Simulated assay, not measured.
Amino acid sequence: MSDDPTRVQEFFTARAADWDARFPDDGPAYAAAVAALDLRPGGRVLDAGCGTGRALPALREAVGPSGVVLGADLTPAMLAAAAQAGRDKEGQLLRANVTRLPLGSGTLDAVFGAGLISHLPQPSENLGELARVVRPGGLLALFHPIGRRALAARHGRQLTPEDLRAEPNLRPLLAGSGWRLTSYVDEDARFLALAVRAG
């Protein structure tokens, strides 16, 4: 998958209308990944690259009515699908590129990113931008509802040593961009890497 923002947008625009229908059983995996963030009522959280907003209901439940839930995505069609599904009631939808977020530094408690890392044009800088908007001690969850091997098989590809999500690659990538990897799970049923904001 290309990391060119225009191609990423074209890819997701073409798939936005039936995205949720293609993956109807992912809800529990999203909820479990959000639970791993251990968010508190009143917390402030961003779903970076939120797509159709499938994580937003679980994020809203975690932070409660007094919390702030933001969903940012580059693709208008995905945000429109999120709104059509009623997920704009769970959080504020923003058309924004995660490479340059319209948020103040240190204003969030956590960032959730589902399927995000393979679409980042400059992963180190972009993860650094996510770190910028999170307070020290805040959390990052990089999630996918299936693991790397299962995802590669779905797309008819082999895993390669260069895969950014492989732990030997991800750990130093996060460390160089303001995060410390604290938990790493890569199994067929899910991929979930948790990191804490350093400093």
Rank of each mutant, 00 (worst) to 15 (best):
V63R: 12
A36G: 00
L59F: 03
A62F: 09
G42M: 13
V45W: 12
S66V: 13
G42D: 10
L56T: 03
A36M: 02
R60N: 06
P41A: 14
V45G: 09
P65K: 11
G51L: 07
A35D: 13
S66E: 15
V45M: 04
R60Q: 01
V34Y: 02
A32T: 13
L46Y: 03
G49T: 07
G67E: 10
A33S: 12
L70N: 11
A35Q: 08
G67Y: 05
A48Q: 04
E61S: 15
V45Q: 06
T52N: 13
A32L: 14
D38S: 12
V68C: 14
D47N: 09
A58W: 04
L70W: 11
G51D: 02
G49V: 02
G49K: 06
A33M: 03
V45L: 10
G42W: 12
P57L: 01
G42L: 09
G49D: 11
A36K: 01
A55I: 01
R44N: 07
A62K: 10
R60I: 10
G51E: 05
L46G: 05
G49P: 07
A33I: 00
P41L: 10
L59V: 08
G64W: 13
S66Q: 15
D38I: 00
R54D: 04
V34G: 01
L59C: 06
A58F: 08
L39W: 10
